[in-house]
């Protein structure tokens, strides 16, 4: 077992373990903090996949941005000091349906992934990807990049507008 393998299992366990806590925890705050470790584990997996730039991005945006937003959302929409911090349960019927559905999807995906012969060319070892990503974004994916920037602008304005107190 080399170090890479150990690292992979560590990050995979981190991700899946805390991911399970996220969806199974009754306490929303616990779920939110578990999400942090899940994201961190995913970032570790990125590093193992030679995506250094994306790993940093994952940490900065998911952990620094989205997760903070979610925690704010939790705090703004839940009376933390009260009992309501716990996420309510759904009915047993729906719960059974959810478990069945999730399991069938998971089994289907695992079946597909493990039985498919993926095309795997000789992998080119990549050094730092930041420069390459920057160049590609501003050349081949310029239109998508601009569209994304407009989307973000619209999202900011829209979010500000929607969240504003109505008079």
């Amino acid at each position: 077992m080399d170090l890479i393998t150990i690292a992979f299992y560590f990050f995979a366990a981190l991700t899946l373990g805390f991911g399970a806590v996220v969806v199974l925890s009754k306490n929303i705050m616990h779920a939110a903090f578990s999400l942090l470790f899940t994201f961190f584990g995913v970032a570790g997996l990125y590093v193992l996949l030679h995506a250094d730039f994306l790993a940093i991005t994952q940490i900065m945006i998911y952990i620094g941005g989205i997760l903070v937003l979610i925690i704010f959302g939790v705090m703004l929409t839940t009376r933390i000091t009260g009992v309501d911090v716990k996420s309510g349960k759904v009915g047993i019927f729906q719960l059974t349906g959810a478990i069945v559905l999730t399991l069938s999807i998971a089994l289907l995906l695992l079946f597909v992934y493990t039985n498919t012969h993926w095309y795997q060319p000789e992998s080119i070892p990549m050094e730092s990807t930041a420069e390459l990503i920057g160049t590609t974004l501003l050349t081949r994916y310029l239109l998508a990049f601009e569209a994304a920037s407009i989307l973000l602008l619209v999202a900011i304005v829209g979010a500000a507008f929607i969240a504003r107190k109505k008079h």
């Binding site: 759904v90 729906q94 349906g97 959810a98 559905l101 069938s104 999807i105 289907l108």
Partner: peptide, 16 residues
């Protein structure tokens, strides 16, 4: 909304 998602996914599974 959640039941919609269930329907959608069940539909996908059935199709598959």
């Amino acid at each position: 909304i959640q039941s919609y998602i269930v329907f959608v996914l069940a539909g996908i599974l059935l199709l598959l």
